[in-house]
Design a binder for these strands. Structure first.
Lengths: 219, 219
DNA sequence: TCGTCAAGTCAGCAAATGCTTACATCGAGG
DNA sequence: CCTCGATGTAAGCATTTGCTGACTTGACGA
């Protein structure tokens, strides 16, 4: 059960991230604790699901008391929202590198799919697709996915108002669905042989799929 | 867990395919009650997930007391196991129609993906991919998926012992992953536009994907 | 009619879970 | 030193959840 992720507390404490203008860290650093909680929570949510994850688990992963989750995020749902917002931000940042060719985008998507099991890739959190019993969380999740879809479709030549490019949007979302399906099999279910397949083995089939979906030949 | 209740497997097979008397359950019929429980449970598990589904919900759906679940299936896990076995059986039956061409298999897979949101398609249950916190359930799930993978791979020319056909196995599982991803987006998350796409719109892209993965051209 | 046994119900227990309230500890400043 | 706010902890409450044991109800044969 409590096997990994003990390091999260340590390395977050000693290295203040550059993102936000943080004050000098002291022995008890609220923002660092918050980040550690979000980090641990995202991992748990992505691998175990929303419902199956307990706040006590998350707190234990970080090594702090459970009550801090309610202090900083009000509720479990609030913590989940924070996770989603951070994931959305990361995907946004990565996608905003301008004027990528579709080939480059495909390569990056493949990389995400291949590496997701090992890293705590933001794509992992999107695995939380099923209704988590929380309406607000579901809304955030859906919005994130649709936004990501438009990003990918834009790289494939989608223009927002022409009706014929609706097909491109659909195809982009099928690419995302495929990615999520593969990540799902690799991470949560450990289904063979996909789970243990190397990046090299996955590379060629995935590239074929994405080219068919997003490239000019497929349309 | 593996004591009695093997009868549940048996009487699942010997059923007249009559229209479900699920809500109209009259009289005291143990096998009918068992079937109704499995049916309701499968729906709940597929849509809400294992953890989020409570045995009280399932019993209430059927209109029966909670204790019957423990009487007939020993535990919640036992009920889930029965659901998985039934799903596995259905997929098995459908896949066992002999000497299918790969094209036919692809068409049927597409049909599954397209229709899953409306019917209680067995594919839906496979959505239960995330670790449900129940080790035994995870094992069953993984086995079912791997079995299904081998079935699909066999239709694509897979032979069990030649090492080069491992690639075929991997590609078949990627096709399954894609199917699961699409079904997931369509059913649980209602992500647009895939969720509201018609079968006709999905047909062509999906066929392209599956041909690339399973057809001769892709290898 | 009565006995028997499967089918089903009822009330409740023990554990888990989200969350709250009261308390403790650390750092800094008067 | 002492106070005060911020950070963190300990204990526990209320609810949910899976499950159990004792009880009731219906069908059927002697």
């Amino acid at each position: 059960m409590s096997n990994e992720t003990q390091a999260s507390t340590a390395d977050l404490g000693e290295a203040p991230a550059a993102a936000d203008g943080e004050l000098i860290r002291s022995g008890r650093d609220a923002t660092a604790t918050r980040r550690a909680l979000v980090r641990a929570a995202r991992r748990r949510f992505a691998t175990d699901g929303y419902r199956a994850t307990t706040v006590r688990q998350i707190a234990s992963d970080v090594g702090v008391n459970v009550a801090l989750i309610n202090r900083y995020f009000v509720s479990k749902e609030g913590l989940f929202e924070a996770c989603m917002l951070r994931t959305s931000d990361e995907l946004e940042t990565q996608a905003s590198t301008p004027s990528k060719s579709i080939e480059e985008v495909i390569e990056r998507l493949i990389e995400h799919v291949v590496n997701a099991p090992d890293s705590d890739d933001p794509l992992q959190l999107l695995l939380l697709l099923r209704s988590s019993g929380d309406e607000n969380a579901d809304l955030i999740r859906r919005r994130t996915l649709e936004h990501f879809t438009r990003r990918l479709a834009a790289a494939a030549g989608w223009r927002s108002d022409t009706p014929e490019s609706e097909a491109i949007l659909l195809r982009a979302q099928l690419a995302i669905a495929t990615s999520l399906g593969v990540v799902m099999l690799r991470t949560s279910a450990a289904v063979q042989p996909v789970a243990s397949a190397s990046g090299d083995e996955l590379n060629e089939p995935l590239r074929q799929i994405f080219r068919v979906l997003l490239g000019r030949s497929g349309q």
